[in-house]
Design a protein around this nucleic acid. Structure first.
Length: 104
DNA sequence: TTGCTGACTTGGC
DNA sequence: AGCCAAGCCAGCA
């Protein structure tokens, strides 16, 4: 099973209203410290012609360790999705990881 | 094959 | 709080 598919399998299990960091996903996939590859896997989604919503792939529930979003094309969409799931954002546009982090 | 690149993290200032 | 270097490893040229 490819690393990419391990990532997708894990992301699918994140409950609504919860968050996971790139590092968390990497460790759960058995690749501790390979956070960058998780980012790569998520970035590859549009190129794979996958419709994330229809594929039940809540990629927007993966954020970085600072509780912020990096500067990538779909970050605005991600913010919107998180807001719909009642995840609060502070004045600096950050999430409370202590509160929303998913612990399997 | 080697050598970059990168939706990241961590530890040390 | 921020900056920086090192580590990570799947693709790609």
């Amino acid at each position: 099973m490819a690393f990419r598919d391990e990532v997708y399998a894990l992301v699918r299990r994140i409950p609504a209203g919860c968050l996971l960091t790139y590092g968390d996903v990497a460790e759960l996939a058995g690749h501790r410290g390979a956070a960058r590859q998780v980012g790569w896997a998520l970035r590859a989604l549009p190129e794979l012609e996958i419709a994330p919503n229809e594929a039940n792939l809540p990629w927007w529930r993966v954020v970085n360790r600072s509780g912020t979003l990096a500067d990538f094309p779909s970050r605005n969409l991600q913010m919107e999705m998180l807001r719909e799931e009642r995840i609060e954002v502070d004045e600096q546009g950050r999430f409370d990881l202590q509160r929303y982090r998913w612990e399997p």
